[in-house]
Computed example of a mutant assay.
Amino acid sequence: MSEDARFEDGREAPLNLGALDSEDLQVVSALVQDAVFPVTEMTWRAKDRRFAILLNRFRWEDRDNAESRRRDVERVQSLLVIENVLKVASQGVDRSDRDMILSVLAVEFEQADDQTGAVTVTLAGDGAIRLTVEALEVALKDVTRPYIAPSKQVPAHDE
């Protein structure tokens, strides 16, 4: 007799997700909400048409598990990579301030009439990074083992 798989039986593994449409991007956006990164950890390689950020991502997917087992919540370093980037613009981001720490609120895609459009990374404090893309292709990949969140707190938002 076979049994259905249970969530508890699954093994914990690093995230490695892709987004090729707005629905996929909503999942990625939810997972990178409250990620923080130094301004020095983002790069645009115009020749490769690739923009990347090394994030310190709160592990939203593990939150309930951590709370139910009464253990500390975690963060993990992840790469957020946007492909097919034609142009990058930002607001509220001072790249000369190498100590600036940015916090992600959301990642959204606004499609034009064809497959082109813009990916906007909205940042806390009225900052934003707008990436004009030929087509939507975003990847999120965990690149380190999880570590205890320094604050040991779940991020909170004022409503």
Rank of each mutant, 00 (worst) to 15 (best):
D97E: 11
A124M: 14
T122A: 10
E110Q: 13
F109W: 07
D126C: 08
R98Q: 14
D99H: 11
A112F: 11
D99F: 10
S90H: 09
V119S: 03
F109Q: 01
S90T: 08
T116R: 01
M100H: 06
L123T: 00
A118N: 02
G125K: 07
V119C: 01
A89R: 10
T120C: 06
R95Q: 13
R98L: 12
G92Y: 02
T116E: 06
V85N: 00
D126E: 14
Q111K: 14
E110C: 11
E83L: 12
Q111P: 05
S96T: 13
Q91Y: 07
T120G: 02
T120M: 06
A89T: 14
D113S: 10
D94L: 02
A106E: 09
D97P: 04
I101C: 10
L123W: 00
G92M: 04
V107F: 05
S96I: 06
Q111Y: 07
V107R: 01
A106F: 08
L123Q: 00
E83F: 15
S103F: 03
V107Y: 02
D126L: 08
L86C: 11
M100D: 05
V85D: 01
G117V: 00
N84P: 10
A112W: 10
G117F: 00
N84C: 15
V104S: 00
V85M: 03
R95S: 14
A106W: 04
M100R: 08
D114M: 09
D114H: 04
A112D: 15
V85I: 13
R98M: 13
D94M: 02
A106V: 08
R98I: 12
L86A: 15
Q111L: 05
V88D: 03
A89N: 13
L105F: 11
L123C: 04
V88L: 15
L105A: 08
A124V: 13
D114F: 09
S96E: 09
A118E: 03
A89E: 12
R98P: 02
R95F: 15
E83I: 10
D126K: 08
V119I: 15
L105G: 03
L123N: 00
L102D: 01
E108H: 14
E108T: 15
K87V: 09
G125M: 03
V88A: 07
D114T: 09
D113W: 10
T116D: 08
M100C: 12
S90G: 12
D114V: 10
V119D: 02
E108K: 15
A124R: 06
A112V: 05
F109E: 01
